[in-house]
Write a protein that binds this DNA or RNA. Structure first.
Lengths: 186, 186
DNA sequence: GAAAAAATTTAACAAATGATAAAAAATGCA
DNA sequence: TGCATTTTTTATCATTTGTTAAATTTTTTC
C-alpha cells in the first residue's frame, strides 16, 4: 500500500497538498516485537502502515489490547497528537512492518498553512471517531460471543494473523472465556 | 453559557472566523422529552447546548444510553455529519433546553473557505475522539462498580440530574445491577 | 394532600464470565 | 527431527451480572 493511496483513502487531496504531505514522509522498517510508541511519553511522530500489523495496548495488572492496525491504517498516540501529553498506549509490532513516518510538528505546520490539509486532518479524526464510537456501542449491547462473531465477520484476517490472547483482550474477556466461546460456536 | 465561549472552548478562533461561525448560528428552545435528533435519519443541523441536559440512545430490544450532553457540549449525529448517512442515535432532552443551532451545510462551506475554521473542526473531532477512546478503555478494564465510582468522581452532577435507569444503561449494566452496586458501596 | 404513576430497591435464582490449574496442541529452534 | 517454549483448550469452582417479580420510595397529577 503506497503513501499516496493511504492519504487519499483518508480524504481526497488536491495534488499540490498531497505532495506537500508526501514531502514530509519518510520510510522506515522495524521487525516483529519492536515497540513503536511507548506509554507515558510524548510521541513526536505518526506512522502509516505500508505493510504489517500492530497492536495498541495499555498496561495495568495485565495488558489490555484495544486496537489493531494493519496495512493502510494510521498509528498515532492521540493524547500526544491532540493534547501534547503523554499517551497511555504502547504500540507493539505483531509482524515485521514497513512504515511511513511523519513528524507531528511538520503536520501541524501544514495544518495551519493549507486549508485542504486541515480538512484532511479533520476527516481523519472524524473517521477514527466513528470507528471508536461504533466499538463503544458494540461493547455496550453485545455480549462476548456476539462481539467475537462480529469481529470474525468484519475482520476475519485478524484471526489468522493475531494470537487469541490478544483477540480476547481486545474483546474485553479472558483468553479462557474466548476459548470457551469458540468451542461453543463450532 | 454563550456561543462565543462554547466555540472558543473547543479551539480558539480569530475574531473574524468566530464571527463567521456565529453568523450561522440561531437560538432555539425545546422542552423536556423532545426528541432533538432521530435515528435512521440524515440530520442537517448540529446544536450547542446553552442550557439543559440531553442523552443519546440507541434502540434495540431495550434503549441503550451511550452519551450525556450538558451545557457547553455539542449535539451531533456523527454519521450524518461525517458520512452523510443516517445515524443510529436518538437524542432526547432530559431537561428543558436552550440550544444554538448550526446547519451542517453552512459549516461545511466554512470548512472549505477558512483554514481557522477547518482547524477548529479538526480540534472538535479530535477532542471528541479522545473522550470516546477513554470511555472505551475504561469499559475494557473496569468492572461495573469501578465505572460507577469513576462516573461519580468525574461527573457527580449527572447523578443529580439523570435518573438511574439511564445511568445504568450508560454504564452498560441493568438498573437492578446498579442498585445492587449502590447498596454495596454505602 | 391523596391517588396514580414512575422510579428505585430488594430478593431469589439463572446465566455469563473470571480465576486457577492442568492437559493438549502448536510453534520455534538447536 | 526432537526438545523446549508458547499458545490454546479443557475442567472446576467462584464471582459478577442478568432476569423476573414484588416491595418500597419518589414524583406527578388532579
Amino acid at each position: 500500500m503506497n503513501i499516496s493511496n493511504i492519504l487519499d483513502q483518508i480524504h481526497e487531496l488536491p495534488e499540490k497538498s498531497k505532495l506537500a504531505l508526501q514531502n514530509n514522509v519518510s520510510e522506515i522498517a522495524f521487525s516483529k516485537g519492536h515497540i513503536l510508541l511507548k506509554a507515558n511519553k510524548i510521541e513526536s511522530n505518526i506512522y502509516f502502515i505500508k505493510k504489517g500489523l500492530v497492536r495498541a495496548y495499555v498496561e495495568r495488572d495485565n495488558e489490555v489490547t484495544f486496537w489493531f492496525g494493519k496495512e493502510g491504517e494510521t498509528v498515532i498516540s492521540m493524547k500526544s497528537y491532540v493534547e501534547d501529553q503523554p499517551g497511555y498506549e504502547n504500540i507493539e509490532l505483531l509482524e515485521d512492518c514497513e512504515l511511513y513516518e511523519l513528524k507531528t510538528e511538520n503536520l501541524r505546520k501544514l495544518f495551519n498553512e493549507d486549508v485542504h490539509i486541515a480538512n484532511w486532518g479533520r476527516k481523519f479524526a472524524e473517521k477514527e471517531l466513528i470507528k471508536t464510537e461504533e466499538r463503544l456501542i458494540s461493547k455496550q449491547f453485545k455480549n462476548a460471543s456476539e462481539r467475537y462473531l462480529e469481529l470474525m465477520k468484519d475482520h476475519p484476517e485478524l484471526l489468522q494473523r493475531v494470537q487469541l490472547g490478544h483477540i480476547a483482550s481486545y474483546l474485553g474477556i479472558t483468553q479462557v472465556s474466548l476459548s470457551r466461546i469458540r468451542s461453543e460456536i463450532k
